[in-house]
Design a protein around this nucleic acid. Structure first.
Lengths: 147, 147
DNA sequence: GCCGTTATGCAATAAAGTTGCATTCGGGAA
DNA sequence: TTCCCGAATGCAACTTTATTGCATAACGGC
């Protein structure tokens, strides 16, 4: 997703010590082309060097809170985690496959949203506007057609 | 949400017998100003006439499959259910409060999305485009400020 | 080396949803 | 009416995902 980010710096700016586990988790998330579930992230980093899954959950939570990581919840039960929008990394919509649960990133310019009206009239604090496309991914379409 | 809908008709058109439980669930969903969780729907209809929560889940699933009801998953673990877009009821964005988990409906014209580009380029089948606003609702803002 | 803070591990628990199987209901045919 | 079939419901057990509480370990300043 974002090879330009300096995770060390991002952590420090957010007031988090850039320790091994946090960096490894960020690297896994950043290196992947699409957002991963906590279980997937756990599986990857646990293979390299064993870690408790609770630790992964806790680190993910803290990263989400500091807006370093974005938590994307969709139709599949498990939340997916991707790098949050930042200077190197524009906000963008996600595609959710209702068939296999895959979550993918779409190009930022794929879809544009007119937020002005909302911002003016909404009584509450807006943190994030999220566009989600739901449907069937190419792979699942292929599988379906084979039957 | 939608007092104009004829639930009986909608069920029949979808090939579902308009039985008691299905109608009661639809009425609860339709009468409420914002989407409810399965647990909330269960609580309401169970008070009137006892029913098993599995039945509620199963009915909700079938209604979602036939596009009578829309399943809205957000940051809170539980999915919310609202009437799906139809002739009396335009697609519209939802607001998700990250603090209390509330999901609310926004006016359809609050936010507009330009889908054209997406539709042309995306390799897969698109079923639904969803806009979700995340933030803190008025109520939670008030509570926060009181501290 | 000592001490307080922060991070991690482990086990138990929780919340939301799902599955398998048994039972009941409702409506048409005999 | 009675029988029968498929649809609907109930119940208990289970799964998945995430969270909590408490104990231990690692880290950094003094």
């Amino acid at each position: 997703m974002c090879e330009l980010c300096d995770y060390n710096l991002m952590l420090e700016e957010a007031g988090l010590a850039p320790n091994d586990n946090r960096l490894r988790i960020l690297e896994v998330i950043g290196a992947n082309a699409y957002p991963l579930t906590a279980a997937e992230i756990f599986a990857v980093i646990d293979r390299t060097k064993p870690v408790n899954r609770v630790t992964v959950y806790r680190i993910l939570d803290s990263l989400v809170q500091r807006r370093i990581v974005e938590k994307i919840s969709g139709s599949s039960r498990a939340a997916h985690y991707g790098l949050a929008p930042n200077d190197n990394h524009l906000p963008h919509p996600h595609f959710h496959c209702t068939s296999c649960g895959l979550v993918d990133c779409l190009a930022p310019e794929t879809l544009s949203v007119d937020q002005d009206r909302l911002m003016k009239t909404f009584a509450g604090e807006i943190e994030r506007v999220d566009v989600r496309i739901e449907g069937t991914c190419r792979n699942c379409l292929k599988l379906k057609n084979r039957t």
